[in-house]
């Protein structure tokens, strides 16, 4: 379990952005979490109120976008979802692949005024 500690980082980062841009109020923050990322979206949602408690983000909405774990087959080049296909290419059956996306944990955007 490391989601709370990681969310403290996110809060610090967003607070810095709010200061730098002279924003008055943050309505929402949008995170992107890859399917292979080391953070679990449900835990992020669960610990969010604790992470923002007493900060300028206290009444801010959290949105999460999931990014797929996509890979390109090392043999035939087909792009497929690693989790759905259990790391086996649906086209040629190869288990060799190059990961295209899915490990991200990004602050995508902040909606504020």
């Amino acid at each position: 379990m490391h989601e709370l500690g990681i969310m403290f980082h996110v809060v610090k980062k967003v607070e810095a952005i709010v200061r730098e841009n002279g924003l008055a109020e943050v309505e929402a923050i949008v995170l992107q979490i890859g399917e292979l990322s080391p953070v679990v979206p449900q835990y992020i949602v669960a610990c969010y109120p604790a992470a923002v408690d007493g900060t300028i983000l206290q009444n801010t909405r959290l949105e999460i976008e999931t990014l797929p774990a996509n890979a390109r087959c090392g043999r035939c080049g087909k792009v497929y979802n690693l989790i759905e296909r259990r790391k086996i290419c649906p086209s040629c059956g190869s288990e060799e692949f190059e990961l295209l996306c899915g490990r991200e944990f990004n602050i995508k955007e902040i909606r504020a005024c």
Binding site: H9, K13, N21, L31, E109, R111, A112, C113
Partner: peptide
């Protein structure tokens, strides 16, 4: 909420640690 603007950050949360 027309007055809200969107700030694109697009940065990995792990970038600071790296």
């Amino acid at each position: 909420m027309d007055s809200f603007k969107v700030l694109e950050i697009k940065e990995s949360v792990f970038a600071d640690n790296d």
